[in-house]
Design a protein around this nucleic acid. Structure first.
Length: 495
RNA sequence: GCUCCCGUAGUGUAGUCCGGUCAAUCAUUCGGGCCUUUCGAGUCCGACACCCGGGUUCAAAUCCCGGCGGGAGCACCA
């Protein structure tokens, strides 16, 4: 099929060929139709740029091997749950083009975690600890066992029963998974598997369950029972993987293939969910999609295409080196996508009126897209008194040089604060006459919201309503996504 | 402090496993040229890198040792 397409469209072939340059490597042990992968966000808010890497990388592989993609909502910390996130996360994944085959919510699986905990107690691989948190940590730091570590399975079950029946309060008892207290890496000595939270109600389960699994516990259990074959995630989980592997080993479960890519430092991005939430509540941000934010919905609002984000992460790949997120590269991928389709329009910021004399009728025909004449023209007829808008900067330049060409319209000579019509021969450009864009006197009021929160307002030529929600190019300004057109044009700057 | 991971241009990346074809790839960025008319568009040309030091070898970005540098974890967060 592809060779056919390539033969009929050499340009297409050329493009795919260069893009393929940075293809992701094969996954070890991947069998077509058998691959199961996941994304596992905590529902504290919508997805942000940082989440897109793990979401897309896993999706790429699932698609390549025709496998299964699981969206696992890790809502085991009732203190950090935004109920709206259960809805926003799937929306964000969908926008990203991630194809989810199954959604799993951890708060629906308490019984499973409890039963695995019981089995670990039976095997002598877990114990209930009622030490003070700090004392337990100190002992662990020194590689010492706490007094509960060698309790019998019977005692363990009994104490777990008491945890489950609310006879312990918060921080009074935990289930600890044994690893190796002598392990040289203090990060992976015995870790907590279950804890009690009864001061906060869970938005989904209320007060029905107060014994919550900790991430390393529920992740190991779910990765096994959901049949994960490959796990790709950030390097920050390196030590977590080591811990989780103990549980796999105790049960003799087959471990997924793990890969940890390097950390991403995203410059100039506001990502932290708690900060954003506060900002929204205080009215500093308009919402989760405020274009100053690094959320997925902010990207969408700005006119960043999901495909650009995807190409960017594929280009970055899976290396373990820590990297700095390069907005320029993302924008470059985005430009590849939007430039061929974005309609061109004039937007005059800092607008100044210029009167034109020496003619009583001027017609302008500008292509909607210079590379696609079939998309038609934007036509303007100017009749006396002829007035147009120029940017303050262009007007000053005109005054200084004495000449200017208004794009697609006419040439002008500066005279007594007005522009005198001097014809429409664009060859004047070869003589060094500068070109400027303009907006008709009866143009639309419009504003472009910049990612830094500033607003550029001015006059735009008439923009048809079908451009709503589309990315256009304001010539000599940049790409912007049109949010709404009436009563005035509101646009968000893309790049 | 302990443990682990990593170190190719401003940024990202290919190559590192299986030394030579690597005076090192591609993209972005930056500089310059071109284009019967925008541009932060397109196109062409150019610029910039193998962390350092030793060793092995005819030959090292690639293997070994040491140093230096960066990052992560050591949570009753995920």
């Amino acid at each position: 099929m592809r060779s056919l397409a390539e033969a009929s469209d050499p340009d297409l072939f050329k493009k795919t060929k260069t893009e393929r340059k940075h293809e992701l490597p094969e996954l070890p042990g991947a069998v077509e139709g058998k691959v199961v992968m996941r994304v596992a966000p905590g529902p504290s808010g919508p997805l942000h740029l940082g989440h897109t890497r793990v979401s897309i990388l896993n999706d790429e592989y699932v698609k390549r091997y025709k496998g299964k993609y699981i969206d696992r909502i890790e809502d085991t910390n009732p203190d950090k749950i935004d109920p709206d996130a259960y809805k926003m996360i799937p929306e964000d994944l969908k926008w990203l083009g991630v194809e989810v085959h199954e959604t799993v919510v951890q708060s629906e699986r308490f019984e499973l975690y409890y039963s695995v905990a019981r089995q670990l107690i039976d095997m002598g691989k877990a114990y209930i600890c009622t030490c003070e948190a700090e004392a337990w940590r100190d002992m662990k730091e020194k590689g010492q066992a706490c007094p509960h570590r060698d309790q019998s399975p019977e005692e363990g079950h009994e104490l777990l029963d008491r945890m489950l029946s609310h006879s312990f309060g918060e921080e009074e008892a935990v289930l600890v998974v044994k690893t190796d207290l002598a392990h040289p890496n203090p990060a992976i000595r015995d870790f907590i598997g279950l804890r009690i939270v009864d001061s906060v109600l869970h938005p989904r389960t209320g007060d029905r369950y107060t014994v919550y699994p900790m991430m390393n516990f529920s992740v190991a259990v779910d990765d096994h029972f959901l049949g994960l074959t490959h796990v790709i995630r950030g390097k920050d989980h390196l030590n977590n993987t080591l811990r989780q592997e103990y549980i796999f080993d105790y049960f003799g479960w087959k471990k997924p293939w793990y890969h940890h890519y390097g950390l991403v430092q995203i410059p100039d991005a506001i990502l932290k969910t708690s900060t954003v939430r506060q900002g929204i509540l205080r009215g500093e941000y308009t919402g989760w999609d405020d274009v100053r934010l690094g959320t997925v919905r902010a990207m969408a609002k700005r006119g960043i295409k999901a495909e650009a984000i995807r190409r960017y992460w594929i280009d970055v790949g899976m290396k373990e080196v820590d990297i700095e997120f390069a907005w320029d590269n993302l924008f470059a991928f985005n430009k590849q996508i939007i430039d061929p389709v974005a309609s061109r329009y004039f937007f005059v910021w800092d607008p100044q009126v210029l009167e034109i004399t020496g003619t009583d009728r001027i017609e302008a025909r500008s292509p909607v897209h210079p590379d696609h004449p079939e998309r038609g023209t934007r036509d303007h007829v100017l009749l006396p008194p002829i007035k147009v808008y120029l940017t303050a900067e262009d007007l000053a330049g005109f005054k200084e040089r004495g000449t200017v060409r208004l794009k697609d319209l006419c040439n002008l000579r500066w005279e007594d604060g007005r522009g005198v019509y001097t014809g429409n021969d664009h060859n004047v450009l070869r003589e060094g006459v500068k070109i400027a864009h303009w907006a008709p006197y009866d143009g639309m009021r419009g504003e472009v919201h910049m990612p830094d929160g500033t607003v550029r307002s001015g006059i735009m030529e008439r923009i048809p309503c079908e451009e709503e929600d589309k990315v256009v190019q304001f010539e000599r300004f940049g790409f912007s996504r049109i949010e709404s057109i009436s009563p005035k044009v509101v646009a968000y700057f893309t790049q």
